[in-house]
């Protein structure tokens, strides 16, 4: 199999630059990506299993897993709804200022996370523009898990919008028309016909938003406040351990974060592949 693939490759190598581009790419990937990642493995290999287990099950750390998962989960769900709404409105309707709103959707990717972090912390603190309105109602966002979810939601807004939007754009008008000629009301048609078409994109976008939220740091730390057992996210725990020169502890936690993210990404890709395969009648 590999041999035949090689032979085929050789035959098709009509274009120049294979050696050079392979060399540059491999050198870069090795030096920039693989070498540093190997150092993590190296660091971890100095730990015994019991030491490792002890490090990753520290109660304060366990609490941080909880609040990170909670925040990322809420943020991802918010973005699933908000992203779907925005994609729908931007694709299906025309209104003044539409191009500006469309461009604004990318703001969270363009704006440095630290800037987003200090801004949200300022807006939602008890004397900020929004916090001031919420405070008398007994609602506090800053220094609670709600603030963490809010910051995570902000930085991952583009994921759902930008994955659902192109799919919705490509949806042929006939799909709507077929549903309507069969007598379906809007709600029924949306739930039973449109939503299933958008489903793979929606799940993928939401999954990516979730993964991104799990790892978010800059936007979250300011509004979170970092109260142990309450508003410490896992990324912050790594950071704190590093400042205490606890490299082993930081590495252990990092391995958990890294493994979770990679596993989730892999799961999203596999799920997407299977779903798409079914729609194309077993042909990928």
């Amino acid at each position: 199999m590999i041999v035949s693939a090689f032979g085929l490759g050789r035959q098709r190598r009509v274009l120049p630059g294979f050696g050079l581009s392979l060399g540059v790419s491999l050198t870069f990937v090795s030096l920039i990506l693989l070498l540093p990642l190997t150092s993590l493995v190296g660091q971890l290999s100095q730990l015994s299993w019991s030491q490792y287990w002890f490090l990753i099950t520290d109660p304060r750390l366990l609490a941080s897993y909880g609040v990170t998962l909670l925040g990322a989960g809420v943020a991802a769900l918010f973005n699933a709804a908000f992203g779907l709404l925005m994609a729908w409105v931007l694709v299906r309707y025309d209104f003044p200022g539409k191009r500006l709103v469309d461009a604004l959707m990318d703001l969270p990717f363009a704006l440095p996370t630290a800037v987003a972090g200090v801004t949200l912390a300022t807006l939602y603190s008890s004397n900020g523009w929004i916090g001031r309105l919420l405070d008398p109602l007994g609602l506090s966002v800053a220094y609670t898990w709600v603030g963490i979810a809010l910051a995570m939601a902000f930085t991952s807004i583009p994921f759902v919008v930008r994955t659902v939007q192109p799919v919705l754009e490509d949806l042929p008008a006939e799909v709507d028309e077929a549903a309507v000629t069969l007598g379906a009301r809007d709600g029924h048609a949306f739930r039973r016909v449109i939503l299933p078409y958008l489903w793979p994109a929606l799940v993928t976008g939401t999954g990516l938003a979730f993964v991104r939220s799990l790892g978010e740091f800059g936007a979250v730390i300011f509004i979170a406040g970092g109260k142990p057992y309450e508003t410490e996210i896992t990324s912050l725990m790594i950071f704190v351990k590093l400042q205490e020169y606890d490299y082993a502890g930081a590495s252990a936690v990092a391995s958990i974060v890294l493994a979770t993210s990679l596993a989730l990404l892999l799961a999203i890709n596999l799920w997407q592949g299977r779903f798409i395969k079914r729609l194309h009648g077993g042909r990928p």
Binding site: V175, A178, A189, L279
Partner: peptide, 23 residues
């Protein structure tokens, strides 16, 4: 429709039943 416009995520049965279920 010319290009059938079947709902690709539904089985043949569900496609035909769609209008009745939408009542």
């Amino acid at each position: 429709f010319q290009h059938y416009a079947l709902f690709r995520h539904m089985s043949v049965y569900d496609n035909v039943a769609f209008g009745l279920n939408a009542l």
